[in-house]
Amino acid sequence: MRRARTITLLLLGGGAMTAAVAAFPTRSGECRAARAAQDKFADEICGRSGSSSTRTGSGFWGGRSSGGATTAASSRGGFGGSAASFSGSGG
């Protein structure tokens, strides 16, 4: 359970940091877990079993959309109405 941890925040707390504690081996098993879950991206995850800083990502999230060329303004306000009846939406 114990891991080498230095929790750094970039956005919250103006970039706060909590202290590291102790060394612990890098987590392994990511590839095995992806295989076990029949993860669509298992091949890519297993292929990136080295340092996380070298990862290239599967590209499932955060890619660029096609479109954006139209100049027509979008309509807004079509989401959010349910929240008026509730306090918060998390759980």
Binding site: E30, F41, E44, I45, R48, S52, R55, T56, G57, S58, G59, F60, W61, G62, G63, R64, G80, A83, S87, G88, S89, G90
Partner: peptide, 21 residues
Amino acid sequence: RAYATPGGTVHFTCVPDHAED
């Protein structure tokens, strides 16, 4: 890192004015 395009954009949303969310 595993699932996103490096340098890509993920938008985040929730209701306004709710501190916990």
